[in-house]
Lab assay of single mutants.
Amino acid sequence: MATKAVCVLKGDGPVQGIINFEQKESNGPVKVWGSIKGLTEGLHGFHVHEFGDNTAGCTSAGPHFNPLSRKHGGPKDEERHVGDLGNVTADKDGVADVSIEDSVISLSGDHCIIGRTLVVHEKADDLGKGGNEESTKTGNAGSRLACGVIGIAQ
């Protein structure tokens, strides 16, 4: 089992970053940390998408990683996509320092995120509470600013 993974985020604009993942036990939580720069100040949706395909930019990554066919939600919700990591918060300089621990994603097994795409979005994720159909699919997080395929790390 891989215990570490990394993702280099890039987009068409100024947004870029490096996100690290570490899972010490196969059924334990995954620590997610790193930094994203070039964002507007505020909240930005942060999700693992189904495919590791960036051939047409971030759009070819498909929908959120959702092997259990659930509705979109927040990272602490029972009803959520596996890939729903909530929001990252950018400061006035456009930098989001990421520090998350998640017990639904994994670096092995059915919820493995390796080979899938991590995406940072234009807007805040409403965590499935926006009151419309799009909220239950995407959290109304808007366009995909930057993305990268999650790969095994040393």
Rank of each mutant, 00 (worst) to 15 (best):
T3Q: 06
K4Y: 10
V8A: 09
L9E: 03
L9A: 02
K10S: 14
G11A: 08
D12V: 09
P14I: 11
V15H: 01
I19Y: 03
I19V: 09
I19T: 00
K24H: 13
N27L: 14
V30K: 01
V30I: 02
V30R: 02
V32Q: 01
V32R: 02
G34K: 04
I36A: 01
I36W: 00
I36C: 03
G38A: 05
L39V: 04
E41C: 11
E41P: 15
L43R: 14
L43V: 15
L43A: 10
H44R: 01
G45Q: 02
G45Y: 00
F46L: 10
F46G: 03
F46K: 03
H47P: 00
E50R: 03
N54I: 10
T55F: 06
S60K: 12
S60P: 12
A61C: 11
G62A: 12
H64P: 05
F65S: 06
N66T: 08
H72W: 03
P75I: 06
P75G: 07
E78C: 13
E79K: 07
R80G: 06
H81R: 05
H81M: 00
D84C: 07
D84W: 03
L85A: 00
L85H: 02
N87C: 09
T89I: 15
T89L: 15
K92A: 08
K92H: 06
D93L: 13
G94S: 04
V95M: 07
V95C: 12
D97S: 15
V98Q: 01
D102L: 06
S103W: 05
V104W: 08
I105V: 08
L107G: 01
G109Y: 03
D110Y: 08
G115D: 04
V119P: 02
V120K: 00
D126I: 05
L127R: 07
L127Q: 09
L127A: 09
L127F: 14
K129Y: 07
K129M: 09
E134V: 06
G139S: 07
G139Q: 06
G142D: 06
S143K: 11
R144T: 11
R144G: 13
A146N: 01
C147S: 13
C147I: 14
C147Y: 10
V149R: 11
A153Q: 06
